[in-house]
Design a protein around this nucleic acid. Structure first.
Lengths: 189, 189
DNA sequence: CGTGTCATGTAATCAGTTACATGATTCA
DNA sequence: TGAATCATGTAACTGATTACATGACACG
């Protein structure tokens, strides 16, 4: 697990204030979950490793909750590592889609087999879009004036543009499928 | 390696005609590489597994090339498995982006540190777009009238729409970054 | 009284990549 | 002469997920 980039996501959160592993997992899921992830099974061992490497320090907080909360604080070495990473060119985006794989071989499918799947993708893209639009308004209000807001909006903006494209594509694809097997694709009864 | 969906990509190719592992790797890379992958180290063991499960048969062709070519043919069981998979709802698309992760924490970066990275992403999106447009013309001509053409174009269409969005986003993001640190972001001299 | 949240961690397993080994043929 | 293509495969490793274990507290 030496070379996990998830380390830098954690250092990013810790740059502003100390956090426990539990918090780091939830922050990651909520704020960057659309383009980066890390399970507990990954994050806990990662934090121990970062501690050994001197990127963070740790102190326990044993108040009421029974497994004592382990709170991590970034060190100078941690900040240096984070800044170095920021300057490096990023890995290429990773994208994998089982739906597209099926569509590519669509001529081998029973007529209509893929229509429902595209329709489901369309629904989920539309749902994401409206969610993003609400989130945009919420964040703009809640983080107004803070230096991190514009950067949060940049990533959100990407989600919105891509999903708008996705909706457009799915609608067009349904039309195309309708043209190939006209009798199989009906509008909702 | 029991549950690799890559099996179905291979069965898809074999549905039309027999192929060797080497060919299957290259077909996958060329035609669906934008949304599905499999290395030799994955595909060769997978083919052996599929043989054991009776999804394919194999016969060797020892003519001139020295490691004898192993050609795989799909069986009835293979076709059945492929059709069943076609009907199943697909896994969610997988997306991961280190660039977006960096941008999310962009307020912690040295001014200008991310500009080059966004610019590079813009270049690569533009390059992909023009490549896709050429590919579209080429495929339309080469596969004119075949039943698989519309399905190839569906997947290509997704790539084009998404990349158009990506270009739009990157251009806008560069403007935004310019607004945050005006002195750091200059136009090309 | 049960579900959800807080909170930590480990062990088993998984899909997949990388590096290595082998070797002929073709093309510049 | 040396790189690219054809062609197969294995072993080591890696990043990550899943399932499990433990247990208190709060809310409805």
């Amino acid at each position: 697990m030496k070379n996990s980039k998830t380390i830098f996501a954690l250092l990013g959160w810790l740059s502003t204030q100390p956090h426990s592993g539990y918090e780091l997992k939830n922050l990651t899921e909520r704020y960057v979950g659309e383009f980066w992830y890390g399970s507990f099974g990954q994050i806990y061992p990662l934090l121990r490793q970062m501690l050994e490497e001197g990127l963070v320090t740790m102190h326990e907080e044993r108040d009421t909750g029974h497994p004592p909360r382990k709170v991590y604080t970034i060190t100078g070495a941690g900040r240096a590592a984070f800044e170095r990473w920021m300057q490096e060119p990023p890995e290429e985006d990773l994208f994998r889609s089982e739906l597209l794989l099926k569509l590519f071989f669509g001529h081998l499918a029973k007529p209509g087999a893929l229509v429902e799947q595209v329709r489901a993708a369309l629904d989920s893209a539309r749902a994401k879009l409206t969610y993003y639009e609400r989130l945009h308004a919420m964040l703009s209000e809640q983080y107004a004036g803070t230096p991190d807001l514009p950067f949060m909006l940049i990533t959100l903006d990407r989600g919105m543009i891509v999903n708008r494209g996705y909706v457009e594509w799915a609608e067009r694809t349904l039309e195309t499928l309708k043209g190939i097997h006209p009798q199989e694709v009906r509008d909702e009864p």
